[in-house]
Write a protein that binds this DNA or RNA. Structure first.
Lengths: 215, 215
DNA sequence: AATGTTACCATACTTAGGTATGGGATGGCA
DNA sequence: TGCCATCCCATACCTAAGTATGGTAACATT
């Protein structure tokens, strides 16, 4: 992708979709005042996709992760497919470590935090427009450390991995398939997770983990 | 409280705290352009409280529900106590029915949704400044239905009861003892709950229920 | 009085979850 | 080098969870 590439008008065409109308208002107000950007907005994934099919791929697409129609990363994949190779990024508040992985693995061009001010947002957009992958520093740092320490010891990488599956209600067999491990191994991890979280079963483990902010 | 009451400058003094800096930017940009408002912002509850103690109660205080330091409504109560009778409201994305009750019972002056545009926000603020309680229509409607309705039917009283036990990670036998019912009956309820919540097992049911705000 | 809904209990069965134990491989570190 | 933690796999066993089916009773609606 060319850094200077663009459309006829010379402006970067940006598409933003979020069900928080307030956030859309930020973009409409701030980014449009940046003379080199032209912003289109939507409130659902379908609205966003309609915009793309109607007027062609945008130079940068920003999608809220929790917006109607997204269904996690599956909506992201749809958008990436439709936007013809141009960057699609996610905008969200507090992504879980696992969501981060999924988002980046799905081929997203980056992640923008709502805890970030609008000023750095414009920079992030230009960065992704140039073909780079953008991720806030605090996420990179947090990503590996995370909370994960409990009074009964800290959770290992694999345990965190398994925990994130538990948090989706997956069963051992599914987890084993996904992680290419044997089911007994998963059971072992689950048992270990429960011990460390002082939970008596997987359901309690998920509850505790959510309350602790581990996931 | 006087409708026209204010401070010396004649402007409505507004304090807004949210860890999403983007949201703060909206206020800073939009509301300050409304000539009768003067906006102060913060990123945590403590910052907000510091502002209040430093410069006295604000005419309207808006607090994000999920911001660091809030701990649900307990942070709200603290703010209300400190702000000396002047209105304190909550700003949030998707509040659960239970949260709504707690918020209003805690003495909040209202709830502002992030799904609302900034324009109606200014009106909401003036409304609360006049001593009224503000709540978006869509919330009032939802509230009466008491959540509990899903696309596959609504949960019965017993099912809600059982669900609340599931949400604590209790097992069928415990629930049966507590509710003085037979274990098979509990199993049946669990199965029914899972169907209505489109979950495949109890753990998923809990997750879905939490996300839907049923518990 | 018939119908529908909800709640309740039971038996039987299959699958999933959790525990206990043991062993092998890796890699960091004292 | 030996020690320790982590990760991985396996077998066996028992309990919990979930499904299927069928039946009784209370109660409100029609």
């Amino acid at each position: 992708m060319s850094i200077t590439g663009g459309n006829g008008s010379g402006k970067i065409r940006i598409l933003i979709a979020d069900d928080h109308e307030m956030v859309l208002d930020v973009f409409a107000m701030y980014l449009s005042s940046a003379s080199d950007m032209e912003v289109t907005t939507g409130k659902t994934l379908d609205e966003a996709l309609d915009h793309i099919t109607a007027s062609g791929p945008f130079d940068v697409v920003l999608l809220d992760l929790n917006m109607p129609g997204m269904n996690g990363v599956s909506g992201l994949r749809r958008a990436i497919r439709i936007n013809g190779g141009k960057p699609v990024a996610i905008i969200t508040g507090n992504p879980t470590p696992r969501m981060l992985d999924e988002i980046m693995n799905a081929g997203s061009s980056g992640i923008v935090l709502k805890t970030t001010g609008v000023r750095s947002l414009a920079n992030a957009i230009r960065f992704m427009y140039a073909g780079e992958h953008y991720m806030p520093l605090e996420l990179v740092r947090e990503r590996h450390n995370a909370g994960r320490t409990t009074k009964n010891g800290r959770l290992s990488d694999k345990e965190m991995m398994v925990l994130s599956y538990l948090a989706e209600g997956k069963q051992n067999k599914e987890i084993a398939n996904d992680l290419k491990l044997a089911e007994p191994t998963i059971k072992m991890h689950v048992t270990s997770i429960c011990k460390k979280l002082s939970a008596t079963n997987r359901t309690q483990a998920v509850i505790v983990a959510r309350d602790l902010g581990l996931i």
